[in-house]
């Protein structure tokens, strides 16, 4: 107990040793200390989100039991949990650092996590389209997010997908247009 140690969750995620320090769960009054705490939490949240492919984090996740985030927002071994206000402040810091975006906009209770930046997602998307030989064909959003074979883009939130497509469209690698039952997109090979 005198030394902090890492811990592997049932889902196989390796928690960092700081997660077993009780002060980690307290919002520190000292701004410098709190910055470190916040940075560590951001790292942990994004890492875990990437591990579990989670895209959305809500303030309520700190209060509800049995959610996707229990493994990191709570630490039963030291009887500590992250409080909602603390999580809220961490989230706002993440938004400021452009590591997350409020989704839907104009509220602060839930965010879309950017464990990959939209630009990165654009590259991933383009790579996936070209490797699967779907260039120049029209795809619906559903074709991308729920492909018959699981891809890195499976379950990607539509808003994030739109951002990625918009980035590709700027470099003329994608074109967005309306079709009968929604929106369709066509990708082009990069020049």
């Amino acid at each position: 107990m005198t030394t902090l140690s890492t811990h592997t969750t049932p889902s196989g995620y390796l928690l960092p040793s700081i997660h077993s320090a009780p002060p980690f769960f307290t919002q520190q009054p000292n701004p410098i200390t709190q910055a470190v705490v916040c940075e560590q939490w951001t790292k942990l949240i994004l890492s875990y989100a990437r591990f579990k492919k989670l895209f959305v984090l809500r303030v309520e996740d700190a209060e509800t039991l049995g959610g996707d985030w229990d493994e990191i927002l709570r630490n039963e071994r030291i009887n500590r949990k992250l409080s909602a206000p603390h999580l809220s402040s961490i989230i706002s810091t993440m938004v400021t650092k452009n590591l997350a975006a409020y989704e839907p906009p104009k509220q602060t209770r839930s965010v879309l996590l950017y464990w990959r930046q939209p630009e990165e997602w654009a590259e991933v998307l383009h790579k996936w389209v070209s490797t699967t030989g779907q260039l120049n064909t029209i795809l619906t959003f559903l074709d991308i997010t729920e492909p018959p074979i699981e891809s890195p883009l499976t379950n990607l939130p539509t808003s994030l997908l739109k951002k990625a497509i918009a980035i590709l469209a700027k470099t003329n690698r994608a074109q967005l247009f309306g079709i009968a039952d929604g929106e369709g997109v066509r990708f082009f090979a990069s020049k």
């Binding site: 009780p22 002060p23 769960f25 307290t26 919002q27 520190q28 009054p29 000292n30 200390t33 009887n79 500590r80 949990k81 992250l82 409080s83």
Partner: peptide, 8 residues
Amino acid sequence: VRDDGNMA
């Protein structure tokens, strides 16, 4: 640093 018992 502090560890607030309320975080239990």
